[in-house]
Design a protein around this nucleic acid. Structure first.
Lengths: 215, 215
DNA sequence: CAGCTATCTAAACGGTGTCAAGATGATCTT
DNA sequence: AAGATCATCTTGACACCGTTTAGATAGCTG
């Protein structure tokens, strides 16, 4: 990807110092370790090793290990938002939007389990969702809310907000449990993981109307 | 609790060896650390310290740190099952059962956040729910399934199974996000955390009928 | 060129999980 | 009762971890 980096460094890149862009390289190294060896192998020293620098080098770009994980998680949320957006595009009708987003969400978690775990571990440590998911900051959260509003015109704002949160909780819960062994017979019976996923999401009310019948 | 343990040890307890029952003491020490200092402080050495024993002592009772956490998690699942059972008892009618169980579940997670985290971390590492939650082994899972079946007589088995899983995912998702800062304004508007919790659970379809309208 | 500052390395500190070897004490056999 | 046995616990070590300090290095500014 990057040329061997040597000689007189005539390349016009932003290559301010010795390494080039170590911050970028460290984040990439972390994601590589995450994919190949899982979250348990993600030590700061291992990241430094992967990036071929000393164990102390990262401290010039991140306050501590947490800040590096924060950066990794941040890119993860970006990617998740992109995946949800791409899913949204596949929806044929307005009514399919919620389903499409939900499937995209859970599939992202299934395909990037280690990254997804880092993302939520960080969130739980800080007790808050990242900026991309905040209510006022038009990101993925608003994508879901808009899809719900489009599907249920005339519902009051509070109900839409609650339904959005509920959908998020539901998708997260399913995302964390989808790979549990207990469900394998059920998956087989339904004809595959995708079918199982859609069936559970359906029961979760993600595709239902906003107005709750109970109250 | 236990007398200073000394003298001639005339007590008739099962006190097979030097310490008494170190396995028990280690699990208790771990839970104490978990409550007082959070999951980040739960090192095997800290547990040994808390139990006033050398760092290597636990290895005579647990294969490794994971096995100790496993034991802690196991007791956590027992406690969660008890809490759900207790919640179930408070339900006035059959139709209230799902609501009562769901509230009990989320409240348990809120009141024992560190323990709940250890429980699910272990589960995700092994990619399976513990025995208490398995489909054939009449535990908490069956409690939920029975409540759903009672509420929706005549629904087919597959639908009940899927609805049970969906409810579980929903409760777990909410349990992990309940304390996120983003929701505080909403909680205030609804008049407290409990109200917020019930409102989200309601939108999650936990109280809805099993039969899905979509298909 | 000199000086400065950002960047990186080397070395060290206390903490961790884990293991091997030895001490200790309860139990069992004779 | 004496000795042998075995589970239990301690000591000490190893490699790894996150983090800090001090010093080397290289690019930029004057």
């Amino acid at each position: 990807m990057v040329p061997p980096m040597s000689e007189t460094a005539t390349v016009a890149d932003a290559r301010p110092y010795h390494h080039g862009d170590l911050r970028r390289a460290l984040i990439d190294a972390a994601r590589r370790i995450l994919e190949n060896e899982g979250p348990g192998a993600l030590s700061l020293r291992a990241v430094a090793r992967e990036a071929k620098v000393s164990p102390a080098a990262p401290y010039h770009h991140f306050k501590d290990k947490g800040e590096l994980l924060e950066a990794v998680a941040h890119e993860g949320w970006d990617a998740l938002g992109d995946a949800m957006g791409a899913g949204l595009e596949t929806a044929a009708t307005e009514r399919d939007r919620m389903s499409a987003i939900g499937v995209a969400y859970v599939e992202f978690a299934r395909d990037n389990p280690a990254l997804y775990r880092v993302m939520y571990d960080r969130s739980r440590d800080k007790d808050e969702l990242p900026e991309q998911m905040q209510m006022d900051n038009d990101g993925a959260y608003c994508m879901v809310r808009d899809a719900l509003r489009a599907k249920n015109p005339g519902s009051n704002d509070m109900d839409v907000e609650l339904a959005t949160i509920a959908a998020w909780c539901a998708a997260h819960g399913l995302a964390e449990m989808l790979s549990f062994k207990q469900f394998e017979p059920l998956k087989a019976e339904l004809g595959g993981e995708e079918a199982f996923m859609r069936a559970v999401l359906e029961h979760l009310g993600m595709f239902a109307k906003v107005a709750s019948p109970g109250t």
